[in-house]
């Protein structure tokens, strides 16, 4: 299993798309953070955003560390469906005929990749946001004090999104279909369900992950009663593992022709 994990990590490292995803996520996180800090200073007290330097403002800014969640989701999907798309699944299953083992390694690798994306984005957000805030007379300590409450959760949530992505990929082998439906559900579908049926919505991946971060960036989410952080984490884990298990039992058992 250790060799298999090493192989999966090597696969990810030697695939261009992985690095592109991390880079794009980092650029977006940096832009959003800079814009957020600069604009709150400009907007003043009249806006919906909490005043610059307050506790909730600091948490909101640090919460951008979870912007990589959907990127981790895509990376997890690529990790499984890419093998089918490029035909490498044949040589993979020839080397390791026990297919459940292959998917197990992919779940763990995608979790790891998600954690890396989360950590990179946390560094980017803090690296861009804190100096800008300090330049606007916000004491660094007031922001740093909120880091333990937000950043570890955001990193873990991003990691679990990676694992969830691998599970989705195991369930839906078609790459385009898997990415399109997972992103549409994450970005649009979950919001609609949350609005119409909040009791169901809180169990959905995005809101389960939000429970982990403790930040509720979307305005509509304010009305949603989130799960406790560890409940959110377990729900995310369950999404990934269960979809992978169903995938192994159904689509992945099919003949490779």
């Amino acid at each position: 299993m250790i060799g298999l994990l090493r192989a999966e990590m090597l696969k990810l490292r030697t695939v261009k798309a992985g690095w592109v995803l991390v880079a794009v996520a980092a650029v977006i996180a940096a832009l959003v953070t800079v814009l957020f800090v600069v604009r709150t200073a400009d907007l003043g007290a009249s806006s919906a955003i909490p005043p610059l330097g307050t506790r909730s403002w600091a948490r909101l800014m640090l919460g951008f560390s979870d912007i990589g969640e959907d990127f981790a989701l895509v990376l997890g999907i690529l990790c499984v469906t890419g093998e089918y798309r490029h035909g490498t699944i044949t040589s993979t299953f020839l080397a390791v005929p026990k297919r459940g083992k292959v998917i197990g390694a992919k779940l763990l690798t995608s979790l790891g990749a998600g954690l890396v994306i989360g950590a990179v984005l946390a560094v980017v957000v803090m690296g861009a946001g804190i100096p800008l805030a300090v330049a606007r007379q916000v004491p660094a300590s007031s922001v740093l004090r909120q880091v333990p409450a937000v950043v570890p959760g955001a990193v873990v949530a991003t990691g679990l999104y990676g694992l969830y992505g691998a599970g989705v990929g195991a369930l839906v082998r078609n790459q385009v279909l898997a990415i399109a439906s997972a992103l549409a559900f994450s970005l649009v579908g979950e919001g609609i369900v949350s609005l119409l049926a909040p009791q169901v919505g809180r169990w959905l991946p995005d809101n389960a992950a939000a429970a982990l971060t403790g930040s509720t960036p979307g305005a509509s989410l304010g009305r949603l009663h989130l799960l406790v952080w560890w409940e959110g984490g377990l729900v995310m884990l369950a999404y990934g593992v269960l979809s992978a298990a169903v995938g192994v039992a159904t689509t992945l058992r099919a003949d490779v022709t």
Partner: peptide, 21 residues
Amino acid sequence: TSFYPSRSARDHLRVLCAMAG
């Protein structure tokens, strides 16, 4: 046709090595 297009020949084989122990 079963290669990841942007992966080098050597990396392709190193991946297989790792999987096969």
